[in-house]
Design a protein around this nucleic acid. Structure first.
Lengths: 115, 115
DNA sequence: TCTGTAGTTAACAATTACGTTAATTAGCGA
DNA sequence: TCGCTAATTAACGTAATTGTTAACTACAGA
């Protein structure tokens, strides 16, 4: 499959090298060579990882002279965060209580505020 | 690579069929055949998707008679949620303010509480 | 124009992922 | 024991992923 954007985001993030690149980009923009420096793999391999990240929208690239500085993009991470929110009640007890509270409020339960 | 648990979680979630299975399991336990029903792919294919989800810790399976009811497990989703939190400041302005606030508090800035 | 640096693309190999159909295991019940 | 249902495993094909090295494009500056 792999057509929807969430799949692209998740499989881009599934690779540890790509996650490390993203983590580096939180510090600020970086060129391809700078990003490649901590890794033992070849530059073309890094270039492909960047292409995957770019295709998923996780990074964007500008160009100044012969450099292609990369910057991290928030939107896909936000999308993923929103997706995972639907499961939060599974582990977050206080979310569960909040959820019940809001449901009670909507039902017009006069006691809702007491919980 | 694909040895660390976050990679296993992310690549398990990267498949739309597997995400749909998880979404179904939020409603409650289900057998393999029940889970397979909405999809057009074969039962062995579903069985393998379940194996991937189980390997990532996203589901667990019990057995009663010849059925293997699956249930969703929260822990890996929570791990992923925690991982993504580190990027929240990229899109969440209020998180950013909160972050600055906490940093100021820690520095002992007497004006911190005013923000 | 020539040279060096930055980065990508091409061509190839190995591995993994995902689907299929056919065969197999496991348990229930007549 | 036999047959039915539930589910997995085996064997296979194909496509995608990830890495390599070699060749190429693009720009800066002497």
């Amino acid at each position: 499959m792999q057509t929807d954007s969430l799949s692209a985001i998740l499989s881009a993030l599934a690779d540890p090298t790509r996650r490390a690149i993203l983590a580096r980009l939180v510090e600020g923009e970086a060129t391809v060579n700078e990003l490649a420096e901590p890794f033992e793999i070849s530059l073309p391999a890094i270039s492909r990882h960047l292409k995957v990240l770019e295709a998923a929208g996780l990074i964007s690239r500008s160009r100044t002279a012969q450099w292609r500085p990369c910057r991290i993009e928030a939107a896909p991470l936000k999308d993923l965060s929103i997706w995972i929110e639907r499961y939060r009640r599974l582990w977050d007890e206080s979310f569960d209580k909040m959820d019940a509270y809001l449901r009670d409020l909507q039902k017009g339960d006069p006691d809702a505020r007491k919980n």
